[in-house]
Amino acid sequence: MKDVTFGQFFPAQSFVHKLDARIKILLSIAFMVAVFMVQAFQFMGFVACLLFVLVVTALAKVPFGKVLRSIKGILFFIVFSAVLQLLFNKNGTTLWHWKFITITDKGLLNAGFIICKITLVVLGASLLTLTTSPVDIADGIESLMYPLKWIKFPVHEFALIMSIALRFIPTLLDETDRIIKAQKARGANFESGNVFKRAKALVPVLIPLLISAFRRAEELADAMDARCYSGSKNRTKYKKMRLTWRDAIATLVVGGLITGVVFLNITGFLAVVL
């Protein structure tokens, strides 16, 4: 249970770590948009995006292996999408044919691009979570959602829910570990049997866990009440987020990347048209 890492924050002192969380979230989204804007058959676009990821990783002083590890989780999804492209794209010239399976050159190329796109998007997202602590991300999201207050969306409460959830993940993991051990000591078996048997074996773990989560929630609510916590009105922040020159540079770089991709798209489009 200890091996489960949620939020893979890698603490370090770096340019990327010091960026404002809000900017980082926005720039990550911008980066993903840029990746998806890259048209197929434009190697340069992918090369630029990959280069960007590499440079950011180096700047952030995060071991590259850690960044790559994030792909492991969705490897199945990547392979699945690539295979779909490979099998069902019937455009282009046929390279190989066997019964109902037809593989075309376009299918092959598209599969390659799908792999590149998803991989790059995941790498970008994991760079965000690697260089920003969960608390900062929650703070950033709260700040970014601030405009929603106009439509009476409870932004502060939403952010509070997020940060409490994040804070309790390690606690509940510890608790789960302890309950699993206690039930194992009473002969519970989680390792053998079919899916249904295993699911049923989890009941003695889930019920105590749920009860303890409710107990903790109640205790936390009491503790907050005791300190006169009352929502968002007139609350000040301990850690104020401020934009610095770093954020300006980062924005410029990502902006440049997007412009480059758009430029490549336009020239590619013109080349086809003309």
């Binding site: 302890r178 051990k181 206690a182 039930q183 000591a185 009473r186 009941v203 003695p204 105590p208 303890s212």
Partner: peptide, 18 residues
């Protein structure tokens, strides 16, 4: 082994479920 070595954890009441 586990049927012959019983183990009572800290706050054992948190393991009740039935």
């Amino acid at each position: 082994l586990r049927s012959r070595v019983g183990m009572v954890f800290q706050y054992p009441e948190y393991q009740l479920f039935a």
